[in-house]
Design a binder for these strands. Structure first.
Length: 808
DNA sequence: GAGTTTGAAACT
DNA sequence: CAGTTTCAAACTC
């Protein structure tokens, strides 16, 4: 490439310099004899050998990056900036879809090519255009992969990145790219404006195409995943081929496969994008390809997705930025805000968490999903921190569901964290867990199935819930939606999905902060560990990916003040160990609710009957920790009047009524349902029968629970707690059945855990209100216990865990 | 949609 | 640690 020339050029000056009188003089002063430039030249040569453009580019990229950030900030602050980023994400997602389609071909080689192509595309975009954003990320990834000692192989990182992109749903991970792209594309965007506008029109017409795309992609993935896994393996093994081009891969696929049926269609999707793009730009495309594609497109009238595909696929050969820009616009409209926002939101935090978790290893089958997530993180140059998937032996170790706080505290067991993350991701991200799982290279079927199962489980859950639009996290909803998509293509379902999405979105965290800049716990988004998104009507919001540093710093600060600040406010009984004591469950079962508010409320006028009351809002009864006056909490009164099981049941009934309004109850109902499902794993999940056992188990913790809005700390940190550990805040009740069965084993473990982790004091009731904050240690501990609870479920499914948990 | 109420969070 | 202030959600009209 260019490197050799550059090297020579560089070398030349050096040699001249050596010959210069000044140099000689300096040499004379120094006792050390200068070595001639040859070695230096060699160095460059060596670099040349590596010849990874990424290496050279990366520095530039990095340099640009700073600039990019500045730009971002400028743009991002405006609400639109976020949209652009989102769009970008979508674009990436679309690409991912295209990739998936290509994967369907079952040709691992093709898949590899695709991956390579995807990588190359980014590189290409970098070199020619010099567009900072898009380029930046990949180069870095490459760089890290190649250079970082920890990284076993570049391919992995690359693969991860690809996977991320592939996960159409996971757009969140892609976000960084998107933003970059959007920025880069400014120039190009203008050029393509017309095309974009056209696309937008198409989008409007198409309506749900995006979803259909996703669903289609999922379906394909599901069916073909085995191949994919193989392909992934191959990819992993295979070293990156920077030179490979996406177009090439597409062409190859096309030529290789005279595709029939779906494969063709997929091809069309993937290829069509580039084609379409070219056509729009008036660029010359490969003739044969174009014609064929057109035909295909015609055949498939419904593939309005072309727009998306185009955007998604992006024309590698051409400026990515253009495609991105166009796609972004198009994608924006298509993609439900939920997905976008959620994805982005969560991802960033995740990423942060990852950063903090340097130790995360990831090879376990379960980790597969994590890898995908990590890939996402890597996009933002997180690769540095990321450990090679293969490295970590820890997979076995029981992870602690961490919330960001926990992450900071210590290196966490990779697996659990990953799992949690995955779950979180699945929730948060519109992308179904299945997507993520698909990408896992090593996981082979298992991971996929797991993810699928989880998704399926969610689906199952959802259907039940369907009728009851619960206040769910948008993330959950999104995940659910995704899951649905995979299986359900019927228009009704889609509509429902859409509706749900809308509802979920409404349920999704939104803030209206005006003075806090969304950097205080006043802000629900911030408190939940989630970035603010479009739906938020906040002012001067700093809780955006752009201000990641600020957000993190603020979080740290707040955490330093109150380690539990970002912990879920409501803790399940089992999870709540720190406060109530794990053993208490039996005893605690007598308490009004299985869950309790972390700190307790301080209500004086609301009688704990309104959402002003955090306990009530969380769907939990008041406890000793509460300092409320005139408590009438329907979920359980402070005095314990409601504590009895029978009462609890009544309350549940009442709650169901109440909750319908509040939106909390539905969750509970769901949980119950989920429990039933868990009991009968096979019943619900059609997709992956075998793996149900695991997913089912896990799901309860992760995905199934749809904590009440306030409770649901969607954010990574909180999300971890909420969803995984403490998770189920509102769910708490649902647990009764679930817990009772599951806990039999778990609870046994719990005591040990408590002993090991929690201070003796925590054992029973950390009643004192003050203790609320005292818990920091507990929190940490609590996190682990909560994990266990989560683990518990997992453990049942997985034999190995039990042994591990006791250790704690 | 504006205004009020409420209680958590933040501050002193 | 207690008291006060600030803040934004929840609620009411």
């Amino acid at each position: 490439m260019d490197t050799p020339e550059k090297a020579t050029q560089i070398a030349t000056p050096l040699s001249k310099f050596e010959d210069s009188p000044v140099f000689n003089y300096i040499n004379s002063l120094s006792p050390i004899k200068p070595v001639k430039s040859i070695p230096i030249t060699q160095t460059f040569n060596s670099l040349n050998f590596s010849s990874l453009p990424s290496i050279f580019t990366s520095p530039h990229v990095i340099a640009h990056r700073e600039t990019r950030f500045l730009k971002r900030n400028n743009c991002s602050d405006s609400s639109k900036a976020g949209s652009s980023s989102e769009n970008g994400n979508k674009v990436c997602t679309d690409d991912g879809v295209a990739m998936d389609a290509s994967q369907l071909y079952d040709n691992s080689a093709q898949l590899q090519e695709n991956f390579d192509a995807g990588v190359s595309i980014e590189e290409d975009s970098v070199e020619p255009s010099g567009d900072s954003k898009f380029v930046i990320e990949l180069p870095r990834a490459l760089k890290y992969d190649c250079g970082s000692p920890g990284c076993s192989s570049t391919p992995c990182s690359v693969i991860e990145a690809n996977c991320v992109s592939e996960q159409a749903g996971t757009s969140a991970s892609v976000v960084p790219f998107v933003e970059k792209d959007s920025e880069n594309g400014s120039f190009e965007d203008e050029v393509h404006l017309q095309g974009a506008s056209q696309i937008e029109q198409k989008k409007e017409e198409v309506g749900c195409d995006w979803e259909s795309l996703i669903s289609d992609a999922q379906d394909l993935l599901i069916f073909h995943y085995p191949n994919e896994s193989e392909a992934f393996k191959g990819l992993i093994q295979k070293s990156m081929d920077p030179g490979a081009r996406f177009c090439t891969s597409l062409v190859t696929q096309f030529s290789q496969n005279d595709l029939s049926g779906e494969p063709k269609r997929q091809m069309v999707d993937s290829v069509g994008c580039s084609q379409h793009h070219e056509m729009m730009e008036g660029l010359s495309a490969q003739p044969g390809e174009t014609s064929e594609l057109k035909e295909i497109n015609e055949i498939e009238d419904n593939l309005v997705n072309d727009d998306l595909n185009n955007c998604l696929t992006g024309n590698p050969s051409e400026n990515v930025g253009d495609d991105v820009g166009v796609c972004v616009q198009a994608a924006c409209k298509r993609v439900p805000t939920l997905h976008r926002g959620m994805l982005r939101r969560c991802l960033d935090f995740e990423r942060v968490a990852r950063r903090k978790n340097l130790n995360d290893g990831s090879n376990c089958s379960s980790s597969i999903i994590l890898q995908s997530n990590e890939k996402i993180a890597s996009e933002d140059n997180q690769l540095e921190t990321l450990m090679p998937t293969s490295d970590s032996p820890r997979c076995i170790l029981p992870g602690i569901g961490l919330h960001l706080n926990a992450l900071t505290l210590a290196s966490l067991p990779s697996q659990d964290n990953k799992n949690f993350r995955l779950e979180i991701f699945s929730r948060q991200l519109s992308l179904p867990t299945s997507t993520a799982s698909i990408h896992s290279p090593e996981s082979g079927q298992e991971p996929v199935q797991d993810s699928l199962t989880s998704a399926a489980a969610e689906r199952d859950m959802v259907p039940v819930d369907d009728e009851v639009p619960l206040a769910e996290d948008a993330s959950q909803t999104s995940a659910y939606l995704v899951g649905e998509e995979s299986n359900l293509n019927s228009p009704k379902k889609k509509r429902r999905r859409m509706e749900l999405a809308g509802e979920s979105e409404s349920a999704c965290k939104r803030c209206n902060c005006k003075k806090s800049k969304c950097l205080k716990l006043y802000c629900e988004c911030f408190a939940a560990g989630v970035y603010c998104i479009e739906p938020c009507s906040c002012q001067d919001c700093f809780n955006k990916p752009i201000h990641e540093d600020t957000v993190l710093a603020t979080r740290k600060q707040i955490e330093s003040r109150n380690p539990l600040a970002f912990a879920p406010k409501v803790i399940r009984n089992s999870d709540s160990v720190p406060e109530h004591g794990l053993h208490l469950q039996d005893e605690s079962s007598k308490t009004p609710a299985s869950a309790r508010h972390k700190r307790g409320c301080n209500c004086k006028k609301s009688s704990c009957l309104k959402k002003y009351c955090e306990c009530y809002q969380g769907g939990v009864g008041c406890s000793i920790n509460c300092r409320c006056e005139g408590c009438k909490n329907t979920f359980g009164r402070k005095d314990g009047s409601a504590t009895i099981d029978t009462e609890a049941e009544h309350e549940e009934e009442e709650e169901s009524e109440t909750c319908e309004k509040s939106g909390v109850d539905p969750i509970l109902q769901r949980t119950e349902i989920s429990n039933n499902e868990e009991q009968n794993p096979g019943s619900a999940l059609p997709t992956t029968p075998l793996q149900f056992s695991r997913p089912l188990v896990q799901q309860p913790f992760s995905s199934k629970f749809k904590p009440p809005r306030s409770l649901l700390s969607i954010g990574s940190s909180t999300a971890f707690y909420t969803g995984l550990n403490y998770g189920k805040p509102s769910i708490i009740r649902s647990q009764p059945k679930f817990e009772k069965r599951l806990q039999t084993a778990p609870e046994e473990e719990m005591p040990e855990i408590l002993r090991g982790n929690s201070s003796p004091g925590s054992g029973v009731k950390t009643v004192s209100p003050n203790s609320k904050r005292v818990s920091p240690p507990n929190n940490v501990l609590g996190a682990s216990p909560s994990r266990r609870s989560g683990r518990k479920l997992i453990l049942q499914s997985i034999p190995s865990f039990p042994s591990l948990t006791p250790q704690y």
